[in-house]
Simulated scan of single mutants.
Amino acid sequence: MTIKPLIKSLSAIAGIGMVSIAAHAATTELTVYSAVEAEDLKKYAARFNQDHPDIKINWVRDSTGIVTAKLLAEKANPQADVVWGLAATSLMLLKNENMLESYKPKNYDQLSPKFKDTSENPVWTGMDAWMAAICYNTVEAEKLGLPKPTSWQDLTNPVYKGHIVMPNPSSSGTGYLDVSSWLQLFGEDKGWEYMDALHNNIGTYTHSGSKPCKLAASGETAIGISFAFRAAKSKKEGAPLDIVFPTEGLGWDMEATAIIKGTDKLEAAKILADWAASQKANEMYNEGYAVVAMPGIAQPVEYFPANAEALMIENDFAWSAANRDAILTKWQQRYDSKSEPK
């Protein structure tokens, strides 16, 4: 073989080797469980991959309650590497089951205290807050003669009978933040009395937190109890919605990130946890959420109230997590008959 063909052969072999190395470098795959809105998953992965193209995210996405139940069912044989975007109250349950890896992301100290596990060995980190809202379809309401509510108590008015849809708290994190916030706002006895009265007006309970607002946006119901992100998005898309932030205060939870204990991809999981707590990630969260974990980042979000954070109740997350099973059992016994089929 002459020198030129030899050089070409060696170059080709080297090229194949480089492609093989690059392919190998790009094959770190993380199984990531999430309850983030489905249409945002591609955006989250794409932004992360701008900085870390060598880590592929394989999403497993469902409503909060379903993801939480799946994680608990897999305790003995975890399938997830990371949780990115699940209610902090759910992660507190997993923490109590010793299912989460202790890890402080690089920007941990820059985050607001209310958005992080402040224990000595933290296992979860907050991302953003999602808060309750009422989606009121002005066109359908006018047809039906339904006044615009301004408070949670207004929704117990018999005029709304059959015209309200809300999420089932067993499957929806939004539904659970509603129920737990009413029990905190009104007290436990009065809170259950309130839900008894509200139940009389409920048309159906959905298994998704966003669905009540989507149904209101499309005119399939006049009123949907949902959350502000979905309400603002539907209104921006042109739906004839007024977004109501009830005067008593807004229940809320935070989306959070954690690493599942036992993952065999710990280093890649830490890289994702670091990025999820970064300034770049918080700026991304602020594209849809008015309140994010890193102070000084949040800019006003269209159709959110300017004082969004001030409307959020003093939420006792520890109480909400500790009493979750008992609250859901009681809720199901009283109200589950109106839930849509799964």
Rank of each mutant, 00 (worst) to 15 (best):
P300S: 06
S119Y: 09
I271T: 15
L146I: 09
Y176D: 04
K211E: 15
K56N: 13
A12P: 02
P78E: 04
G251N: 10
S151G: 11
S63N: 15
F304G: 07
A216H: 05
G175S: 08
H24N: 14
V159Y: 04
M254R: 04
D336S: 15
E140G: 01
I260W: 07
K4S: 02
P305S: 12
F227D: 15
S226Q: 05
E287F: 00
R324W: 09
G191P: 01
A231H: 08
I327E: 08
Q279C: 07
F48M: 02
N137E: 00
G126A: 06
N157R: 00
S170Q: 09
A298E: 13
E74I: 12
A277M: 07
E193C: 06
P167H: 01
E237S: 07
K42Q: 13
A76V: 10
H52S: 02
M294F: 10
P240H: 03
G209Y: 02
D189N: 13
P212L: 03
E267W: 07
I3Q: 15
A228T: 10
Q50G: 15
A256F: 06
E97A: 00
S180Q: 12
F48E: 02
T257N: 15
S20N: 04
A217T: 09
D54H: 13
A310I: 00
I134N: 05
G251D: 06
E340C: 06
A88L: 05
V165R: 01
A322V: 07
V83A: 10
A228F: 00
D196S: 11
V60N: 03
W152C: 07
S210E: 05
K148N: 00
L177W: 12
G173V: 03
S208P: 09
D196L: 10
E101G: 01
N307C: 14
